[in-house]
């Protein structure tokens, strides 16, 4: 350790170049690892769909009664009677080439379907994240230097909000703000006003959780010796919180936010239904119910890719926030 310290001294200026190199390496390693994640996700999907009851041929033939000969031709065409390993490898090969095929049910290319739904979902996730961050940072900063009972009040309110089921909150918001006050539309994905209520319903829980974590982080950081030093320099309490303490508290929060954003992509389904919105979650739900294999696979892949990208984003954010992690790759 002593030796290490001295070595760092020797290597004083201009280290940022190598530190940036370390970040690039980190991202590359993450990307490589993400292929394993994607492969795992695709394989798990295949297995799950195989063990689910009902045959794919029935799905394909859902709306028509056909002769056994036609049915047999269909089965052969889709390779449904091949041995499982062969089906699996064909499936992997198609995905690797980016051929997701057509939806069994909607009879449209899967990508068209995804492309139609994704913008709505991403927009909702983005607004939800934004509201989560703004609300939790405000709540955290406002509550942290209060008396203990004020903090307990905040904590109690947060527990209550976390305990609210989002669909119930959604219905409540609809009743009050759409049906009674007519402030916001009750359905639809198109207008910005239509985004407000679903965002609130989705962000409430995460915002409450993040606010709690953030406050704990702030409280912990406020006890660090550098806080007294900063105060002794004559800076104001607001500057102390924004310049020093908040960054420390944000470290655990970034990881949490990454996870929240990832789970919202496929997990906003209940809110999408309550507010009659389009979205990936809804698409996934109907695809699973219909055993619409191509769509399910595509949704899983999109979600997995989103998680991978978010993980890398969190890594980069951590790298930006905490200089100590930059030397860790040594």
């Amino acid at each position: 350790m002593a030796g290490v310290l001295r070595m760092r001294e020797a290597a004083a200026p201009g280290r940022s170049g190598t530190a940036r190199g370390a970040l690039v390496r980190l991202v590359l390693v993450r990307l490589a690892a993400s292929f394993a994640v994607l492969w795992g996700a695709v394989t798990a999907t295949f297995v799950l769909l195989q063990v689910m009851p009902g045959s794919t041929a029935d799905v394909l033939l859902a709306r028509s009664s056909v002769t056994p000969a036609i049915r047999a031709r269909l089965v052969a065409e889709y390779g449904l009677d091949d041995p499982l390993p062969v089906q699996y490898l064909t499936y992997l090969g198609r995905i690797a080439r980016g051929e997701f095929g057509e939806s069994y049910v909607l009879r449209r290319p899967v990508w068209d379907e995804i492309a139609a739904q994704l913008p709505d979902t991403l927009l909702l996730v983005a607004t939800t994240l934004l509201v989560t961050v703004v609300v939790s940072v405000l709540a955290g900063l406002l509550s942290v230097n209060r008396r203990a009972w004020v903090r307990s009040l905040f904590a109690a309110a947060e527990s209550l909000v976390v305990a609210l089921p989002p669909f119930w909150l959604g219905l409540l918001l609809l009743t009050v703000f759409s049906f009674t006050l007519h402030w916001f539309p009750a359905i639809g994905s198109s207008s910005p006003a239509g985004l407000v209520l679903p965002t609130v319903a989705l962000a409430a829980g995460p915002a409450a959780v993040v606010a709690g974590v953030l406050r704990e982080g702030l409280l912990r950081a406020m006890e660090e010796p550098f806080v007294v030093t900063a105060r002794a320099r004559g800076i104001g309490e607001a500057a102390l919180r924004l310049r020093h303490v908040l960054r420390h508290a944000l470290l655990p929060v970034t990881t949490l936010l990454g996870w929240i954003a990832g789970s919202l992509i496929g997990g906003a389904v209940i809110i999408e239904i309550v507010f009659s919105r389009q979205g990936i979650g809804r698409l996934a739900l109907s695809a699973v119910a219909n055993k619409d294999m191509p769509v399910v696979v595509a949704v899983v892949l999109v979600t997995a890719v989103a998680f991978v990208l978010l993980t890398i984003t969190v890594d980069i954010l951590t790298w930006v926030i905490d200089p100590r992690t930059r030397d860790a790759g040594r």
């Binding site: 660090e224 010796p225 550098f226 007294v228 030093t229 020093h244 960054r247 200089p323």
Partner: peptide, 9 residues
Amino acid sequence: LGSLDPLRR
């Protein structure tokens, strides 16, 4: 050791 904010230059 602890009196300088570790996250700032």
